[in-house]
Amino acid sequence: MFKALADASRRELLDRLRAENGQTLNELCVRLDMTRQAVSKHLAILEEANLVATVKRGREKLHYLNPVPIHEIGERWIGKFDRSRLQALSDLKRNLETRDE
């Protein structure tokens, strides 16, 4: 999973699925600076790592972001009480950074 996440193009594909879940390969290729072949290969790696789940619909294959393995990692290292502190820190960071813009 970490290997799958280590690549910027693959993280971009996950971001695009987060923005719009259930896209086909063709839809994912739009406005991407990658060949169709490269996108297809990246998706296969993401699916292998269980970060992307797919559903066949007729002749199309729809791709969905699967955050379950990331959730598992979170539970392993983030405890119940850390969570609210981390949320507060991340809110603070976001507030300060948007104010700078």
Binding site: N21, G22, A53, T54, V55, L62, Y64, N66, V68
Partner: peptide, 10 residues
């Protein structure tokens, strides 16, 4: 019905 959320675990 169209799938909107799909979660997989092993």
């Amino acid at each position: 019905f169209t799938p909107k959320t799909v979660y997989v675990t092993y």
